[in-house]
Each structure stands twice: as structure tokens, then as C-alpha cells.
Amino acid sequence: MAAAQVPSRAGWWRRFSRRPPAVIGLVGVAVVVAMAVFAPLLAHYSPTTSQFGHVLAYPFSAGHLLGTDELGRDELSRIIYGSQATLEVGVLATLLAMALAVPIGIASGYYRGAVDMVAMRIADVLLAFPFLLLAVGLAAIFGPSLQNIVLALGIAQVPGAVRIARAEAMALREQDFIQAAIVTGVKDRVIIFRHLFPNMLSPLMVQASVSIPGAILGSALLSYLGLGVQPPTPSWGTMLASAQTYLYNDPWLAIFPGVAIFLTTLAFNLLGDGLRDLFDPSLR
């Protein structure tokens, strides 16, 4: 099933843009990225300043479009700034996982033999621990901070990513053009860097965009459990955790962060689907 496709460059934008969900995903991701990058420009209030006179205000009240939280901080600004933590973790964790997994996967899939066996056994063991529990455990050990949940989520994603990278490497290795290079005595290192890896880029890109949603949900979860960025830095997960206490007073506090997480994850999912269709449309 890991069909290493060599995609056609021509007209990829045309084919991508033909599918509305994919474009919506791209737009959504762009919006979230813009939110994170231009947060200071977009938010009217500081996300950390409390205004104790306006605690738990409902949406559309006096200058606060989405209301305020239990400490009087503007919800909208906190949502905008919260995107930073979410994106940082989601993207960095996945990139970390890929950076670790791809070399191992290639070594495993290309060289096979002892390296492969050992790598696969280790992957099996790591995969025996449920992803989130592993991430929670690691994060708890490392201590709560943004960098540490990036590390925790990244490491937790590695075994799965190794499996995929390995499958791609194995499939590509059997293809005629690689076989030809091997047979004509081209050095391994050259084959891997010049031929194997470039052809793995597109499936890996697809895999990354498919993993980011999981990382985002994971980061939200870890924040919810208090393992992520610490207050007062806003993060959608922590906002949800505190909102749960005030569920009866101000349900809106629980709705907005969740919607933000949902929409961001959805956007990445749509983008990922769109990319996957681009490279392997037979699955459509």
C-alpha cells in the first residue's frame, strides 16, 4: 500500500484547487498561521491583563466580542494569542518526529537486516504504549513547559512515523530506477540522498500534514492536563481546563477554545486530505 508515487509537477495547483475542501483547508491553515504571526496586531487587549471589574462577561458585552474569562481577561485576545502555542507545538512536534523518524526509517527500509530488526522491535515496544499516555508520561517526567510538550509529543510520534518512512523507503528501493542505480555500483549515500529521499518528500509531506492534527489535539490535551505552557500565557487547552470549573456560570468560556481547536484541526485535516489526493488520487 505504500506506493511511492513520483508526482507530476505540472498543474498541481490546478488539481489541488479543483477540490473545495482542500482549498478551504489551506485557507483555514493560513488564517490560523496569520493569527499566530500577527497576534499583537490583531488582538485589542493584552491576553494576560486582568480586568477585575469585567469578570466572566458574556460575548458581545462592552468591547469584548467574545466576553471575558474568570480573571477578566479578554477572551478574543486570548484565543488569538493561544494560536501561537497550539501551532508551535503541533508543527514543531511533528517536524521533530519526522526529523528523527526519517533517517531511522530510511536506514531500516533501505539496509534491512539487523538494523531493521532492532528498529522494528523498538518501534513495536514504543507503540505498545498508547500514544497519549506515552506523551503524558514523558511530559510529566520532563516537567511542564512548551518545549517539553513538543519533545514529548515528538517522541511519542516517532515510532509511527518510522514505520511509515520505512515502508516508503522499502517500496522505493524495489523500484527499477533505484535497483538500476544499485546494480551499476552507485554509492549508497548517493542513492539515498540523490534518488531515494527526494522521492520520499511528497509522501512524507502528506504524512506530516496528516500527523499535525494529531499533534494539535495532543498538545491541547496536554495543556488541558496542565502540562503545557503555564499561566498566564494563553493556550487553548489550559483555557478549556479552567473553563470547566465555570461551566455553570459562563458556558461560553468552554465553547470558544474548543471551537478554535476544532477548526484548526479540521483545517489541517482538510489540507492533509487535499495533499494526499494530489499524490494518490486513486483513493478518492
Partner: peptide
């Protein structure tokens, strides 16, 4: 399916409780 995949489960739970 996309809905189910993108929704944070703990938030979904909180919403249902709500």
C-alpha cells in the same frame, strides 16, 4: 468523519455535558 477526526475528545465531552 472529518468532524469526528478533528474534534478534541475532551472538549466534545464537555460540550455534551453542557
Amino acid at each position: 468523519a472529518l468532524f469526528g477526526l478533528s474534534i478534541p475528545s475532551f472538549w466534545f465531552g464537555i460540550m455534551l455535558i453542557l
